[in-house]
Amino acid sequence: MFDFLKKQFIDVIDWIEQPGELAWRVPFDGREIQTGAQLTVREGQVALFVNEGNLADTFEPGLHRLDTANLPILTSLMNWDKGFASPFKSDVVFLSFKEQHGLKWGTGQPVTVRDSELGALRLRAFGSYSFRIAAVDTFVERVVGTLESVSVAALEPQLRAAIQTAIATALGGSGVPFLDLATSQQALSERIRVEVDKAFAQWGLACLSFYVESISLPEDVQAHLDKGSSMRVLGDLGNYTRFQAAEAIEAAAGQDGGSIAGIGAGVAAATALGGAMAQGLGASGLGSQGLGAQGLSGSTAPVEDPIATIEKLHKLVTLGALSQEEFDAKKGELLSRIR
Rank of each mutant, 00 (worst) to 15 (best):
P110E: 03
V221N: 14
F84R: 10
I167V: 12
F9H: 13
I13R: 00
G106R: 13
A276G: 05
A161Q: 06
I133N: 03
S259W: 02
R160T: 15
A170R: 00
S76L: 04
T169S: 05
K330E: 11
L123F: 08
A134H: 09
Q164K: 10
A201Y: 01
P302T: 08
L71G: 10
Q8G: 10
V93I: 12
A272R: 13
K198Y: 01
L71W: 02
L66E: 04
T300M: 08
R65C: 05
R122N: 06
P157R: 05
W15Q: 11
G332D: 02
G36T: 03
G172D: 13
T309E: 15
A276L: 07
L188A: 14
P302G: 12
S299D: 05
E21R: 06
G173P: 08
K7G: 14
L335T: 02
S76H: 08
R25F: 04
S299W: 00
D29K: 11
I260C: 01
E99R: 13
E190F: 01
L291A: 09
G287T: 11
A168H: 01
F84Y: 15
I310A: 15
D11T: 14
M78K: 14
G320R: 14
G285Q: 09
S323Q: 09
Q222M: 13
Q8V: 08
L22N: 00
L319T: 15
I133Y: 02
I73V: 15
Q294L: 13
S288W: 12
A199W: 00
L48D: 02
L217P: 07
R25Y: 05
A154C: 02
L39S: 04
D3A: 14
S229D: 09
P157H: 09
R42C: 06
L179V: 14
T75P: 03
Q45L: 12
L237E: 11
I310M: 15
Q324K: 11
A308M: 12
A56E: 09
G275T: 05
V12E: 10
T241H: 05
K198Q: 08
E43P: 11
N54F: 07
L155D: 03
S149N: 08
V144L: 05
D91L: 05
L74Y: 09
